[in-house]
Amino acid sequence: MKDIIAKRIKSARTLSGLSLRELSEKMHGVVSHNAITKYEQGLMMPDSKVLLALAHALSVKPDYFFRPYTVNIENIEFRKKSKLPKKEVSAIKEKVTDSIAKYIELEQFLNISSNFINPIKNIIIKDGDDVEKAVDSLLTHWKIGFNALPNVIELLEDKEIKVIELDADENFDGLSGWANDSVPVIVINTNFSIERKRFTALHELGHLLLSFQSDLDQKLIEKLCHRFAGAMLIPKETVFHELGESRKKISLSELIAIKETYGISIQATMARARDLKIIGNDRYIQFCISVNRNENLKKEIGFGQYVGKEKSSRFKQLLYRATAEEIISMSKAANLANQKLATFRDEFIEI
Rank of each mutant, 00 (worst) to 15 (best):
S176K: 03
E237K: 15
F228L: 09
Y262T: 01
I161L: 12
I188E: 09
E154W: 00
V152Y: 05
I221Q: 14
F212N: 14
W178L: 04
S253Q: 14
R196K: 14
L276Y: 08
K219Q: 11
I266F: 11
F212R: 12
S193F: 13
I264A: 05
S251E: 15
V239A: 13
E170V: 07
S253R: 14
I256Y: 10
A201G: 03
E242I: 08
L220F: 04
T190H: 09
H203D: 03
K277P: 00
L156H: 02
N151V: 08
Q213W: 06
R247F: 06
L209T: 00
G206F: 01
E154D: 11
V187Q: 05
E170N: 10
D217A: 10
E170S: 12
Q267S: 10
W178S: 03
I234E: 12
H207Y: 11
E260Y: 10
V239M: 15
K223N: 11
A168E: 13
K259E: 04
Q213P: 03
S265D: 02
A273H: 02
F240H: 13
I161V: 14
D173Q: 07
S182Y: 01
V183H: 06
R198T: 03
I266D: 04
M232C: 13
E222F: 07
L156W: 00
I188M: 07
I279Q: 14
I188Y: 05
N189E: 08
H226Y: 07
N151H: 08
L166S: 11
D275Y: 01
K159W: 06
S182A: 10
S251F: 12
A273Q: 08
N191Y: 03
F172N: 04
V187E: 02
S176M: 04
M232T: 01
I250A: 15
L255C: 09
C225H: 05
V152C: 10
D158C: 07
A273G: 08
L233E: 05
S193D: 14
A271E: 02
P150K: 10
F199V: 02
E165Y: 04
I194M: 12
H207T: 02
A231W: 01
S182R: 11
K248Q: 15
N180H: 05
K162Y: 11
N191H: 11
R196P: 00
H241V: 07
D167E: 11
I258Y: 04
V163F: 07
I186T: 04
C225W: 01
V185C: 14
Q218N: 08
I266A: 08
P235M: 12
L255I: 01
L156Q: 03
W178P: 00
K223A: 12
P150C: 06
V152T: 12
G263V: 07
K248R: 15
G230R: 07
S246G: 13
S211Q: 12
H226I: 00
S193Q: 12
S251H: 09
F172L: 09
V239G: 08
D173K: 09
L209K: 03
G206P: 00
I186P: 03
S182W: 01
A168Q: 08
A229R: 03
S251V: 05
A273F: 07
I194C: 13
Q213V: 08
L224N: 02
A271T: 02
R227D: 06
R274N: 09
F228M: 12
V183I: 15
K162V: 14
R274S: 08
N189P: 04
R247Q: 15
K159Q: 15
I153L: 11
D217I: 10
E245V: 13
Q218M: 09
